[in-house]
Design a protein around this nucleic acid. Sequence first.
DNA 1: CATATAAATTTTATGCTTGAAATATCTTCT
DNA 2: AGAAGATATTTCAAGCATAAAATTTATATG
Lengths: 167, 167
Amino acid sequence: MSEHAALVPSGTLEAGAKDAASSKVRLRLWLKLLKATKHVEAELRENFRTNFDTTLPRFDVMAALYRVEPGLKMSQLSSVLRVSNGNVTGIVDRLVDDGILVRVPVDNDRRATTVRLTKVGREQFARMAAMHEAWIDTLLDGIDVAEVQHLSDQLEHVAHKTTKNED
Amino acid sequence: MSEHAALVPSGTLEAGAKDAASSKVRLRLWLKLLKATKHVEAELRENFRTNFDTTLPRFDVMAALYRVEPGLKMSQLSSVLRVSNGNVTGIVDRLVDDGILVRVPVDNDRRATTVRLTKVGREQFARMAAMHEAWIDTLLDGIDVAEVQHLSDQLEHVAHKTTKNED
DNA sequence: CATATAAATTTTATGCTTGAAATATCTTCT
DNA sequence: AGAAGATATTTCAAGCATAAAATTTATATG
């Protein structure tokens, strides 16, 4: 969804946080991060729908396969995209129906299948990728490129934090 | 999904971008932003599931209603959360079944319904909100609070950009 | 008043997503 | 070889999300 907005006035309900104030600040930051991301995603989704009659998940699958010409096994795809196996199955099914992807049996292992872009799929992706890049460029226009590296590092760190164990 | 990863080597497929290099940089930033956000969301989802047997969308609805004691109309809820009407209908249905929410008819307008948290709902939300804040605090630990304001401003700006018209 | 237009909500069809169970195949170990 | 375990994938049930159509009630206009 889009909010997760639990910005509750700090009453007696602390949950062992180190510092109530900074925790509120971080929460607010998270809500903004989320809002910005969802906004961009919504724009992209809409653009993909109206311009190419496709979806972000389909684009993601195609992007992953575009980079690896000979294709990927279903399990690799699911791990690269960080989504469940069953999820990939469904999206790939539909892309195969549409002639964008082919399933190729793997030698010496009849359990596995390789998925690969067709010629049509590659061509379509190239067109979509160019537009995608342009859309992002517009949407992130306000952000100073010089500061991007710094911001990136912070996000990189966030992307590896866990609520269980510190890495 | 999680990637939208169309980081394609800049060949002949430019789409009218101002500067090919900075556009690539922005794209890379977007992918990191997305990755970080998805990661945090995944952690939260898992925590909500195992700790409270609930979901982020349900939490979002409860959060919106917690702030407005007398409740909100379905349309207001859908507009606050920025999700479709039909979507809200489904989530509210289930929360009502679980005794978290009540639907209250609106005087002088039999089309509309107000949705409000029950006592049980309010109590449950308070507990969840405290944990939620603590989880965020852990997950965003690496980010320097002093820089948060700056980052926030950039994101604020992003959240209002459109691919159609500059605002 | 009657009808048209607008507004609030639900319903429908389709697709994405997960976690868990089921299937099928491969590998290992005795 | 045969059983046990691991790996690859699909299937299933439930929920989330959208856009578009349908339904119901309200309001405005002739």
